[in-house]
Design a protein around this nucleic acid. Sequence first.
DNA 1: ACGCTTTATGAAAACGATTACGTTGTCGCC
DNA 2: GGCGACAACGTAATCGTTTTCATAAAGCGT
Lengths: 361, 361
Amino acid sequence: MATVTIKDVAREAGVSVASVSRALNSGGGVTAETAQRIRDVATRLSYVPHAAARSLITRRTHTIGALLPDLHGEFFSELIRGIDQAARARGLHLLVSSSHDGAADAATALRAMQGRVDGMLILSNHVDAAFLRSNLPASVPAVLLNSAVKSKSYAVLNVDNYGGAYAMVRHLLQAGHSGVTFIAGPADNFDAQQRELGYRAAMAKYAPHAPLDVVAGDFNEEAGYRAGHQLLARKPRPQAVFAANDMMAVGCLYAFKEAGVDVPGDIALAGFDDIPIARYVTPPLSTVRVRIADLGRSALEQLAALLEDSKHATPSSHTLACEIVARATCGGDRQAAPHEHAPKNAVSTSGNRSSGTGGKA
Amino acid sequence: MATVTIKDVAREAGVSVASVSRALNSGGGVTAETAQRIRDVATRLSYVPHAAARSLITRRTHTIGALLPDLHGEFFSELIRGIDQAARARGLHLLVSSSHDGAADAATALRAMQGRVDGMLILSNHVDAAFLRSNLPASVPAVLLNSAVKSKSYAVLNVDNYGGAYAMVRHLLQAGHSGVTFIAGPADNFDAQQRELGYRAAMAKYAPHAPLDVVAGDFNEEAGYRAGHQLLARKPRPQAVFAANDMMAVGCLYAFKEAGVDVPGDIALAGFDDIPIARYVTPPLSTVRVRIADLGRSALEQLAALLEDSKHATPSSHTLACEIVARATCGGDRQAAPHEHAPKNAVSTSGNRSSGTGGKA
DNA sequence: ACGCTTTATGAAAACGATTACGTTGTCGCC
DNA sequence: GGCGACAACGTAATCGTTTTCATAAAGCGT
């Protein structure tokens, strides 16, 4: 059961190793029948080329690396799913390194991937241009996800946080609310910043006389809960609240429920991300949906394009659209959908196909 | 900016490549000062050994592969998190291939990993002993997760589905319900089978005169919803319902709410998995928690042990305990916890740390 | 001083593939 | 019939490491 090498195949087929290589890879330079015979022998011996040996000479690993922060839940799964599917379709392998906290951590991981990958997918908010310059050799192409980096050396793929927030604020205002309060995310988070910008722009456009109203938050449920209580203490209570992400919106919702405030009757509420929980809280949360699997997929495809002709492939910047999902909490003229069982819209984002511990049937 | 090899380091340091290799790896066989000089030169040139070349000769890739089915949501993330953290701690890389549906698909993926990994972590319900024999060379050690396979060739690591279900049924019965109805999972799913067995055993033990009552399900919300309606149509309604997973319990809960049936007043309800949604439905769902990150972690550690001495490391079977989480839906003598914000128990399973699209702050 | 063990070091052989370059043989064409 | 082109195939170099083996220097006991 010793590993069978190309030599064994060659000997068995009565040819040289060169011919075996040609028959199995390029196809040219060998007669059709010799090629067939070689292939037969190869399968009979169940020969599988040694990946390391091959990539030593071809300088290709057919592997792409994904550097991800300490992500949780649906976001992580969907992202990987998108990446993995696209990668498999292209015959690429996926080397994952997740759960990074801090730049030093990410740098180590990035360096550890040196030479093991042909390209990188990077999602991290402590990654900037300087970081990349010193930790990523120029020779390995990379696609940055949701990054503020603007460089023509790297391709960047962002979710349209700005547009999504803008659209949601417009939606709330057009539903009749005269103002919108925004619960912000972490100050150093790129997504959070963009969402706030979208909020400000939409307010300026559709409610130019209403005051801008931003309270601090950090993307956690607890922060939303505190913000909710805080807002209820105001003399004229806000009419509508837009949280920078769903978890804060959920926290806020519980604060409102606890105080006996009706949503959306007394206050309208909306979040951002469309995490699965959003559909299950009572009442169901209006939010902005992000097609995360698509994000992963297109990131990989962009990287693959860069890999194919690293010469004249210009690393470009793209943005992925969001869509607003009007459920119960935003009030207004929504349709009276009771509860979405087995959601009809076949978006990959909303994955309540989740099974037990062991996977699908 | 051409890649710097060991030769460059050797020339620059005025030694042979052998010494460089020794200085950087074993440490023995070189003077302390030469070793230091070599290390200095190496860092100065920012030399990083070519992984392929190295593993060509050492026959080690320092990479482990993870073969996963088409998982969604929290389960997937937590599993990978656990694996990844443990892997990093051991200096191992993680090659992921997920989203497999069907045995053929899994076989292809498994074969594609040939030679790229030192060991495999496998979670898939269409993987059995025969499958492994024909698709996995005996030389590569593997750990099977949640698998029915009983073989001394492979290590198996299971969640204690049986024990968890048993404990939950006992809990329900001891809370005063005279019987429990079970909503089963897919017939061919190993977890589902074990959970049903646990249900049956607990019933036999603690309610020997109550009839066993199992209705079909498939782990999806929709099935739980249908089962819920179906159960309400019974003449004496069931007193307590235990669903084989949380998604079905949630579907069932919505069916009850729709019919105006009070939970837990009229009917008690419980699920399995403790998915994040469980905490957010109204009322919060009682369930059985599975420490998924721990599952991944110990799987990797077991594999690492196998890797270190493949000789006399006996691939053993282990089981990971569950814990029951009594929230509102199961009635009984639970404490009146209003809502768990920022959960105190620092379990890695309940990850509402989830952020926006861009990761943590 | 002299042999003998220890130790640092270098030269060279692996590892398993791809591929540039020869070599042969066959065919076509003048 | 000879000459050149081309196709099929083999030989050997190559990729960047690790590791065995040889060699030289140095320490050490007598």
